[in-house]
Amino acid sequence: MHDDDNFGVPKPFPPSRPPPSSVPSNAASRQPPAASDMGEGPQKPPGGQRVIPCDVEPAPRACSGLHMLALATILVLWGLKFLPATHFCHPAGPGRNWIPLNTSRHPADVPHHVGSVDIFSWISCMDLRTLAVLTNSTLSSSSNPHDLSFTFLIPEGDSDQLPFYKIKSVLPHSIVTVTSQKKIKDKLNVATPKGNFLWSFRNELSPIIIATQFSRKRHVYISADSIVKGNIEDLVRVDLGSYAIGAAEDCSKRLGDYISMDVLHAVQRTAPKGLVYTEPFDKDTCLLDFDVLIVEPRNLKRNLVDSITFWAKAVNLASHRDGIRLAITLAFYNDYLNLPTNWKRANDNTDILYYDGPKSVCSKGANLHQEKGSGKAWQQYLSQKSDAALST
Rank of each mutant, 00 (worst) to 15 (best):
P172T: 01
K217F: 07
T192L: 14
D225R: 12
P207Y: 09
R216S: 13
G241E: 14
G230K: 04
R202D: 07
V236P: 02
A191I: 13
A224D: 08
F197H: 09
F201K: 14
G195H: 08
I208N: 02
A244I: 05
Q213T: 03
R237W: 02
S200H: 06
S223K: 07
A247H: 08
N203E: 08
A244Q: 07
P207T: 09
K182N: 05
G246Q: 06
T179A: 13
T177H: 06
S226A: 15
P193A: 12
T192H: 07
I208W: 05
T212R: 14
I210F: 09
L188K: 05
Y221A: 05
S180E: 03
K194F: 08
D186W: 06
N231W: 01
K183H: 10
D234V: 08
I245K: 04
F214L: 13
I184R: 06
D225W: 03
L235Q: 01
G246M: 09
Y221L: 04
H219A: 10
D225L: 02
R218G: 06
R216Q: 12
I175W: 00
E233C: 05
D234T: 11
V238S: 03
R202C: 11
F201N: 13
S206K: 12
V228P: 00
S226V: 12
V176F: 01
N196W: 06
T179Y: 01
L205S: 12
K217E: 08
S242Y: 10
Y221I: 05
I184K: 00
R237V: 11
V238E: 12
G246C: 10
K229N: 12
I232R: 04
S223Y: 06
K229P: 00
N196S: 15
S226D: 07
F201E: 13
N203P: 00
I210H: 05
K182Y: 01
T192K: 11
K185I: 03
S200T: 12
P207G: 02
D239E: 15
K182M: 12
Y243H: 15
A247V: 15
E233I: 06
V190G: 07
W199R: 08
